[in-house]
């Protein structure tokens, strides 16, 4: 059984934000508008954190793209009273929107703040509704959502390889953010499969996970920046 995971090379990432936007369009994440945004309700399944180290003039800015970490030991699924979020057999932490009662326990439980609540029904002008991604349903209001590792793409890839009568290979299933990254800073694949790049990269001396000490066992690894020699 594959264990899907991601590696993000911070030495390659320039913080351009293409992943953030590709994610929003792929998953039909709502554009909440100025008023809701002002209340801190902007929805970003993929986000970029910016850190400043040091003080002027010796300051170092670091960018860090942050999807859902799809933890192997996820804190969010444990608090869900209705099993609207659970870890599936391939390790993806998935959401069942119709089952969600909007209690937002999981949003609070996630130490990485990856979850968002649909405060209102996502709306688009009539003309723009045509441009939504037909592979992903638009969420109703009152449910929590987050990065899905574009699991709908996995379903499609499965169908495709079944038609072609072969096994799923690296590159058949890639989330939108990884696909769009112009600098090739993001890698995706089966962490347990020695043929996949992520398997090797996660063992790099530069690899780290975020807040590993919590025991969440995140499946997103980062490769730290290198200093110039």
């Amino acid at each position: 059984m594959p264990r899907w995971g991601m590696v993000i090379d911070l030495n390659k990432c320039t913080g351009c934000g293409a992943c953030v936007v590709a994610c929003k369009t792929e998953l039909n994440v709502a554009i909440v508008g100025p008023e809701e945004s002002g209340k801190g309700r902007t929805m970003l399944c993929m986000d970029i954190f910016t850190f400043y180290e040091g003080e002027f003039p010796n300051v170092k800015t670091r960018h860090m793209p942050r999807p859902c970490f799809h933890c192997d030991n996820p804190p969010c699924t444990k608090v869900c009273p209705v099993r609207a979020t659970y870890r599936n057999e391939e390790g993806l932490v998935t959401q069942i929107y119709p089952q969600c009662i909007g209690c937002r326990y999981c949003q609070v439980a996630c130490p990485y703040t990856v979850k968002f609540f649909n405060w209102s029904k996502p709306e688009w002008p009539k003309e723009m509704r045509k441009a939504l991604n037909p592979d992903v349903s638009v969420r109703p209001d009152g449910v929590v959502e987050k990065c899905t590792f574009c699991v709908h793409r996995l379903q499609k890839a499965r169908e495709q390889v079944a038609v072609e009568n072969r096994e799923l290979e690296e590159g058949d299933y890639v989330p939108a953010c990884v696909e769009i990254c112009p600098t090739g800073a993001m890698y995706f694949g089966d962490l347990d499969n020695a043929k996949h790049a992520v398997n090797k990269l996660k063992r790099s001396h530069r690899a780290f996970q975020v807040m590993e000490d919590l025991g969440t066992e995140p499946k997103v690894y980062y490769l730290s920046e290198m200093e110039i020699e």
Binding site: A18, V21, A22, K24, T25, K126, E127, A131, I180
Partner: peptide, 17 residues
């Protein structure tokens, strides 16, 4: 093969009401 955030949502210009 790369695009910027703007190009990625370029269809919004097409369907802009």
């Amino acid at each position: 093969g790369g695009v910027c955030p703007m190009a990625n949502v370029g269809v919004e210009a097409l369907f802009n009401p």
